[in-house]
Amino acid sequence: MKKIIGLTRIFIITLIISGVVWFWPVIEIGFDGSAHYTEQDSRRYELLTHDLLKDMPRISARYDFDFANIAGPATFVWTVTFYGTDDIHDIETYLIAKGYKRQATCDVEADCWLTSASKDIVTTGRFTMDKTVMVQIQERTRQ
């Protein structure tokens, strides 16, 4: 009986440690509030990347991701930045296919996209000086 209890304790401790190790990127975000990573960092990529960005066309060979909790637990921002290109056509086509519509106005110097299927705001911007394209998703505060 003591062996079974001892093995059960070891199993539970191992399970807890494994969970902490696997979810460490999310736990780390709780402390830092943000993360910068690439698709090759598979755990962070799987746990932190918005599904819309996961399925987005890769318009250049070099790109990276950012995640931030900018206003406490209610608002998150996900970003993918593509380097060495300023051609945004494939991303616009992708957003239209997902039901997003370009808005007439935007609070920032970028194009804002909305869909009735989500409360998220997608902004797309290109920087021609250094040939960079940025796509950002901001979760609107839910009420």
Results as ranks from 00 to 15, higher is better:
Lys2Arg: 13
Thr8Phe: 13
Phe11Val: 10
Leu15Ala: 08
Ile16Thr: 07
Ile16Ser: 02
Ser18Ile: 07
Val20Cys: 09
Trp22Phe: 15
Gly30Trp: 10
Gly33Tyr: 12
Ser34Met: 03
Ser34Glu: 06
Ala35Arg: 04
Glu39Gln: 11
Asp41Asn: 13
Arg43Gly: 01
Arg43Glu: 00
Tyr45Gly: 01
Glu46Pro: 00
Glu46Met: 09
Leu47Cys: 04
Leu48Asn: 01
Thr49Gly: 07
His50Arg: 04
Asp51Tyr: 08
Asp51Arg: 03
Pro57Gly: 13
Arg58Pro: 04
Arg58His: 14
Ile59Gly: 05
Ser60Arg: 10
Ser60Lys: 12
Asp66Asn: 11
Ala68His: 03
Ala68Met: 09
Asn69Lys: 11
Pro73Gln: 08
Thr75Lys: 14
Thr75Gln: 14
Val77Asn: 02
Trp78Met: 03
Tyr83Glu: 13
Gly84Trp: 10
Thr85Asp: 10
Asp86Gly: 05
Ile88Gly: 06
His89Ala: 15
His89Trp: 12
Ile91Glu: 06
Ile91His: 09
Glu92Tyr: 08
Ala97Tyr: 08
Lys98Gln: 15
Lys98Val: 05
Tyr100Ala: 06
Lys101Leu: 03
Thr105Ser: 12
Asp107Glu: 11
Cys112Ala: 11
Cys112Gln: 03
Thr115Phe: 07
Thr115Met: 07
Ala117Tyr: 11
Ser118Arg: 07
Asp120His: 11
Val122Asp: 02
Thr123Glu: 01
Thr124Lys: 06
Phe127Leu: 14
Phe127Ile: 07
Thr128Arg: 11
Thr128Val: 08
Val133His: 02
Val135Tyr: 03
Thr141Ala: 15
Thr141Pro: 05
Arg142Tyr: 13
Gln143Met: 06
